[in-house]
Amino acid sequence: MKLPGLSENRILSYAASRILDVGPLDYEEALALQKKIVAEVISGWGTETLIICEHPPVVTYGRRTLQENFLVSFDELRALGIGVYPADRGGDVTYHGPGQIVFYPILDLRRRGRDLHFYLRQLELCVINALRGRFGLNAYRKEGLTGVWVGPYKVASIGIGVKNWVTYHGLALNVATDMAPFETIRACGGDGRMAAIASFFRDEDLPVQEVKECLVESFREIFFQTDGRPTP
């Protein structure tokens, strides 16, 4: 399948499910791509898809985001080279930028139990398993909150949208992200201090690609069987 506007699609698997690693992609384009695939999956003709990408600097916010969670004006953000974009997802304001791995799973929850919170917990588990297994980080979730933490720092943010029980939006894991732009917002409504996992290693050149591969493997184990079919 050729996807308009994307010249470097890398199809890692193609069966009842597929993984599209599209590399750097504007937030707006990523949202359009998600909505296109969501509509296909809702129709019954689409393929469940994990979109993997990395955004240029952008601050996104949900419908319920409070003005007080912006610590600078939109104009100031733009002057810093940071885009601003409203998002129809759960969660509050957050920042995306280079060095951050973004997963947008388009999954059909009609075949997966129709449980929004269970799905949020599965996304957390995907990150926790990846960080604990290969990298030995004591990643964990916090009761009553959504996301993944290492020590006192939140390293992954999660926010989803669901349309006719088909998911979009997803998770963002800070691997080697410049965390300075997070100072311009109260990220996720103030769930705590944010950090990139590279900061937990002496060598700050933690390869994003290696983390991505671990995260993909973890995702496959939780959501896709090896033949690409959804895990029951």
């Binding site: 949900g62 759960g90 799905y119 959504t146 926010g159 349309k163």
Partner: peptide, 29 residues
């Protein structure tokens, strides 16, 4: 209830997004 896509009196089509609700970090149409 986070967002109504239509106002009272509007014509709506079966299957179209009507209202968005939010729970935790999820929105549901």
């Amino acid at each position: 209830i986070s967002y109504w896509y239509f106002e009272r009196g509007a014509a709506v089509t079966e299957g179209s997004d009507l209202v968005e609700v939010a729970t935790d970090k999820a929105t549901f149409n």
